[in-house]
Amino acid sequence: MTTQDHHHDHDHSGGSELSEMQLRVRALETILTEKGYVEPAALDAIVEACETRIGPHNGARVVAKAWADPAFKKALLEDASKAVATLGHLPRVGEHLVAVENTPQTHNIVVCTLCSCYPWDLLGLPPVWYKSTPYRSRTVKDPRGVLRDFGVTLPDSTEIRVWDSTAETRFVVLPMRPAGSAGLSEDELAKLVTRDSMIGTGLARAPGAA
């Protein structure tokens, strides 16, 4: 399916040949604009906000804070929406955000088998693979196989916990703090937090790793 075949080295040069989808989407926007249903500038603003204001950099700040501050971590695990709201420098996140903690005993993975539910106000829009049929179909049955696709192997004794986002609760994983990160500042810790580590398909980076 095309989601899987997508290559990123085309469609970005703004060449003269417009794709069929581009033409169909442009036609719909023309109709909506001519009818006065929407202002193109308002659409521009939505796109800009999705590309810059939200994103995994916000989630990384929250994880770094939780690693550095035990009281914040406790508050985050009790009520993530409320805890994140106390961090003034982040965009406001909605309600029903739930943070789940990875430990040596338990590894959490988040999926939405029915559509693409994702904590976008904390992590931005989901990556293509999160919305893909392979991820949505396999994660609830063969999460270790899915983790192998990401190059992640966990000990056989680690319990895997999959959270299927079937309602408006939104889950974010608090990854384990990597070894060798003692004494790092929150800014330095945030650089170790990957998007995938907050979904549960990856681990936080080790300090000094690329």
Binding site: D11, V47, C50, W129
Partner: peptide, 22 residues
Amino acid sequence: VQPESERDPVFHAPWEARVLAM
């Protein structure tokens, strides 16, 4: 599953962004 680089753009073509916004 085909993992994606975390440096990949949010939208992979301009029309995707317009669809989301509309």
